[in-house]
Design a binder for these strands. Structure first.
Lengths: 195, 195, 195, 195
DNA sequence: CTCTAATCGAGACGGTACGTCGCGTCTTACG
DNA sequence: CGTAAGACGCGACGTACCGTCTCGATTAGAG
């Protein structure tokens, strides 16, 4: 609506080494900046400068900084959702919970940026959007709880809990986190409950 | 840090009828715009135009649109937190829950804008910030659950649940909402639990 | 063309003592400010503040600061022109010259402001305009010199010379000034000349 | 004193063709506007619009319209002063006078704008400033006439005379102008004189 | 190993919104 | 009941980024 054609190449299948190098530099610089301030206080010129690339070059790879964030976020979120889905299954939620927490712990730096940095709000929305999409076909587990609400609460609860955990200087061990996670977020939604 | 002197008057004790009129017009126009798009896509010129006031006049009342939103949000949130606090008390959470839901239901239009419009993210942060502040002195209710986490989960859960509820075309009755609220958000945090 | 009607009263025949007081205060404050900076760097609020009157009150007396300057300038210039005219007469230019210089010397503060302060350019134009008007009916004194040119040169020369004189810390005596005035400005225009 | 950092480049050595094109367009549009109204009634937006460039682009080349005028004026004035200086020399003032008048005549359009348009006052000041600077080292030609006064009178007289000449619909021939110039402005200052 | 095309840097440019300032009009409240 | 105080609409200011668009310079990888 806003823009005309952009002269951006399609680098998706590029084999040129420079392309990969440039993309990596952008990503790295961008995540570093996101650690420091919210998305809308970061200028593209800043990213380009931090990545030691030309301003114009940024646009050859990403149409906007928002789009860049979405690209990064989407791929990371997919991993997490794949790990998180079994959590809601009937089998062994405690084990799946632990697996998910460990995954985040292993990529602490990245997730810390995503969840506690300037991208948090964007990420939350994307996270919930993708979760709802994945869970769209599910049937309700409880007659008193619309499935959609369940997904929203679990997803947002997960994000908040992980964000809190990543912010701590002396984070509690993963096992304890998994217990909190299970008791406050998972069980209330999937378990049978007595009023 | 950014600005030099601003020529803004202190209107807090203003008695001039025009002042109230102008402030009301700004607020109304702003909330209408927030219904349609996120905060950062709203320009001050748009607000001024919609409120039928001069562009400059906006700054005579609010230093920025962010500040305006915070002013509005803070006062509304305070009301809600006052109603919400007893919910966590030991006595009768179900009753307090119902009271809070009814309050939101009675101000549906306003809260709908705040929670589901372009201000949602700002409001969430402010909400959690204020909740943490209010709850700072509390002692932990559970040895396995840090008090801070409890507050965060209850607050964000509340926001998500209310936001979902306000988005529905055919919203479920308040009583049912209160049940969900109690089972998924309150009880898991304040009650004793069996693993 | 720009403005609608102004609610300005006509105070020209006012007898109210306050009116005179106010006008005097404006005039005084204005001239003081003109000593310090050019006209367009002086704001009306500044004048009003310096004159200890309300901002709006200024407009009850003068439509704009430019107009105010013109009012002041015009009356002063008229005095000077009346003294200066005989200078060009055939009788005794040296004597008239001396008279004029003495007049300026006696009102040094005022003329210093008018000629060397921020009003200089406006004053020059007004001065030349009035001079040309007064001298419109004159007949040329020399066949080789259009009357208009003569008036312009004498007028602008007078202004420049007086401005220079008023700027000096140790001004030369009036008598010497009159000599310069006569030799460089008056004589070349009115006297018969040998090429 | 006024401004913070300006993002203006140094175009003095620019080779980009667009730069020259833009600068020329600005200059042309600016001079055209100066023909019509005084400097302070011209807005930068007007200049930009008339030059068919973006508003912001103006500032990439000139910090303000006043500065732009000074740049233009300074370069033109330098030419004229170089021609005018020999006029005051002892040799052949009549010839130098003629040369100078011819130069102005050949650039009638430009000088007409500078001297009779909205820039006249600014130009006068700059002219006198530069003249005094150039003539700073001179020694007085007459014991009764301070050198500074001589420079001021010659310079301002020159400007007034040229301005008058350029304003005429049927201007007198250059030769007659040179005679007036010599008799009324040059001779009275440099020649020995009998009281 | 060359050379040709892809990629990049540098930055000029037209825009849009910002927040500030001063103007001149108009309204209100006070004395 | 008139006047000061000041709220207001207006429009220009100068700044900051935006995203588009040339330009050459460099460099990879195909011939």
């Amino acid at each position: 609506m806003k823009h005309g054609k952009i002269y951006r190449s399609d680098y998706s299948t590029a084999t040129d080494a420079r392309v990969h190098q440039t993309r990596a530099a952008i990503r790295k610089a961008f995540l570093q900046l996101l650690d420091q301030k919210p998305l809308d206080q970061i200028t593209i010129r800043e990213i380009a400068s931090a990545a030691s690339i030309g301003y114009t070059t940024f646009f050859r790879h990403h149409p906007s900084k928002e789009e860049l964030l979405n690209e990064i976020a989407a791929s990371e979120i997919k991993h997490l959702i794949e790990l998180a889905m079994p959590v809601l299954g009937p089998i062994d939620s405690r084990e799946a919970t632990l697996t998910m927490c460990r995954y985040v712990a292993e990529h602490r730096a990245l997730w810390s940026t995503l969840l506690t940095g300037g991208a948090a709000n964007v990420l939350r929305e994307e996270f919930i959007r993708l979760s709802l999409q994945v869970a769209a076909s599910w049937e309700s587990t409880n007659e008193w709880l619309p499935a959609e609400v369940g997904v929203i609460l679990v997803t947002s609860g997960t994000i908040e809990l992980l964000a809190w955990w990543l912010k701590q200087k002396d984070p509690i061990p993963v096992e304890k986190l998994a217990i909190i996670f299970d008791r406050t977020i998972i069980s209330p939604v999937i378990n049978q409950q007595r009023s």
